[in-house]
Amino acid sequence: MAQNNETVYAHFDEMHEFMCQAFIAAGVPPEDAKVCADVLIESDKRGIDSHGVGRLKPIYLDRIKEGIQFVKTNFEIVRETPSTAVIDGHDGMGHVIGVRSMNMAIEKAKKCGLAMVVVRNSTHYGIAGYYALMAAKENMICFTGTNARPSIAPTFGVENMLGTNPLTIGFPTDEEFPFVIDCATSITQRGKIEHYARINKTMPAGWVIDGKGNAVTDPNIALKGLVAGTCALTPVGGIGDELAGYKGYGWATVVEVLSAALQGGSFLKTLTGINADGSHRPYHLGHWFIAIKIEAFTDPGAFKKTSGDILRELRASKKAEGQSRIYTAGEKEYIAYLDRSKKGIPLNPAVRTSLEAARDEWKVKFTFSWEK
């Protein structure tokens, strides 16, 4: 049995099975529960601990319990053409909405060359990179993004207005892993701050600012402030425009517009998830998915060879003093996958406590490996 202060490792299958059972216990249909678990476990497999099993209870199960996320997903096609679609997710399971929407974009792109599917009234859809991986497996390029509850302050501002709004791009290469750039348009995202709070670690200065524009380094203060509106994340580039914070601000705005304007969705302060009386409500998030069929432009093999050559040349370029290697997007995640395939997913005491609480609350009959 694990000690209270140690990190333990759990196999992919164990965590996937538990999440499936927990979602089913909460009322999610079994087929949809598997989709949700697939998206979450992919995050842990790739070393993205901020978006994996640690979010099962606080982000998904707790919202289901509050009634602000619905277990049965009503996937409504509002408008459709051969290469486009507008979807209303009716605040169902974001992972299910995301996977169905990405699959729709892929199938349309197979016929038309390019396709775009946009979504309104959805919920958190996990790591955006999951959908890029789906497209890469089909020899397609993917662009996807989602808005989120307000977190980022505009450059020269201190009020949290924009979500962390990932701008994600992926495509296949001739290497063992695709190129996937999946990151927030803020310097960091709320999930990483939650991770720092769980491990009781101070954040780097510059990630979060208070109402006067001063850096906040205590993750617990930051999390409370982000909810209360007294703290905000900084955009990629950081505070002000000296290091080009306006670039991250601009990219976040692009994602916000594409997540709301095409589908008639909610945006900015309407995504707080909080009513005027302080009660919680659905977040009504928007997503968008673009799939591009490589074969419509060139031979997929040639595309993957050129892409791979570019990435290999970048990694082989001259390194800074003291640095052993250069990485390209998707490489670190692939390395993490190889390592975790052998060792398992690292679970610190806070995450284990959260998983045990979820099991007990939803009366899931499950014994974790660390309890044996």
Rank of each mutant, 00 (worst) to 15 (best):
T173E: 04
A148H: 11
P150G: 12
F156S: 05
E159C: 01
T155L: 05
M134Y: 09
F143Q: 04
N160I: 07
K137C: 02
Y130N: 06
T146D: 12
N160C: 14
G170M: 11
T155F: 07
P154L: 10
F179R: 01
G129R: 04
P178S: 08
F179M: 08
L133F: 04
G163F: 15
F179A: 01
G145P: 06
H124E: 05
A153Y: 01
F143T: 02
M161T: 12
E176R: 00
P166R: 02
T144P: 07
T155W: 08
M140I: 13
G145S: 12
F156Y: 10
G163L: 14
A136F: 11
C142N: 09
G126I: 14
A135G: 04
L133Q: 12
A128Y: 00
T164W: 12
L133D: 15
I141Y: 06
I141R: 12
G170W: 11
P154C: 07
E138Q: 10
I141C: 06
E138F: 00
P166G: 06
E159H: 03
E159R: 02
F179D: 01
H124F: 00
I169S: 01
N160H: 12
L167F: 15
P150C: 13
P172F: 08
A153I: 02
Y125S: 13
F156N: 08
R149E: 14
H124L: 00
N147S: 15
I152T: 14
L162N: 09
E176Q: 03
A136W: 06
E159I: 05
D174Y: 07
E138S: 02
I141T: 04
K137D: 11
N147C: 13
N165G: 07
P166W: 01
T155M: 10
N165L: 08
G157K: 00
